[in-house]
Amino acid sequence: MMRTLEVVRIFALKDLRIALTYRLSFALGLFTAFYGMLTFFFVSRVVGHSSTVGTPDEYFSYVVVGVTLSNVLRAAIMTAASNARSDQVEGTLEILATQPISPIALALGWSALPVMESILEGVVMLIIAVPLGFSASPDWLSVLLVLIVSIPMFLTIGFLGAAFVLAIQQGTGVMGLIVATMSLAGGTLFPTSVLPESLHFLTVLSPLTYTLKAMRGAMLEGQSPAHLLSGSLGVVLIYAAVIMPLSSIVLSASFRFARARGSLSRF
């Protein structure tokens, strides 16, 4: 466990060093967050005043929590695959596979900095959103609990993307499709009740649905950890109990498959 955390730290620092050589991208990320919040603010002025989403300010708060959390979870899901692909294309994957590090440590290392960046960006987005009318009554312990439960779970969903990359040199597209489906069905931008009946099974299946519900409960309604655990966050925990070991097994198997095929250096 300590060794895994150490590897994650080493890779996060490596990615930070490389990211700092592209200083402009961080500043551009902040501008993107600012313009994103402005966009959602004006959209809320248009779509507010309805029985489904409430007043413009209520919708704005709803969408700010949805977008901020979804961005973090998107980073958790997508970056293992995209960074695995980068190492594959750039030629560093094969030598990493000769190092005495476990596939899980490597996959977590791939995701560590992007997830931390997305959390920082989320904080910036919330700060920008406050003067625009974002109002919340957070239970910070519940907010923290939702993050602690959901981020590792979504990170391990991301292992599947890395596994695809290792096995068939593709994966980011598949994970993009999964993220888009979960965002559509999970209620990132609008309540799931507006979806047609035929898509409700996606809402029920998507772990993002329960994660967003838990975070909105924690952030906007100040629900307690016990309340969340007995409801939506409890469902997320069940997902985590199934997905985390399963994804870890699939990731390790994909490494074995790539070694057997001799395809670690292929792209």
Binding site: R3, V7, I18, T21, E90, G91, I95, Q99, S265
Partner: peptide, 27 residues
């Protein structure tokens, strides 16, 4: 191990940073 692949190191890190990174991955 060292394979013929000059892309097997991180080009936007210095030589020293590359070696330190891999030294740490070796434990």
């Amino acid at each position: 191990a060292a394979f013929v692949n000059e892309r097997s190191i991180y080009w936007r890190l210095t030589g020293r940073e590359n070696l330190r990174l891999f030294a740490r991955t070796r434990g």
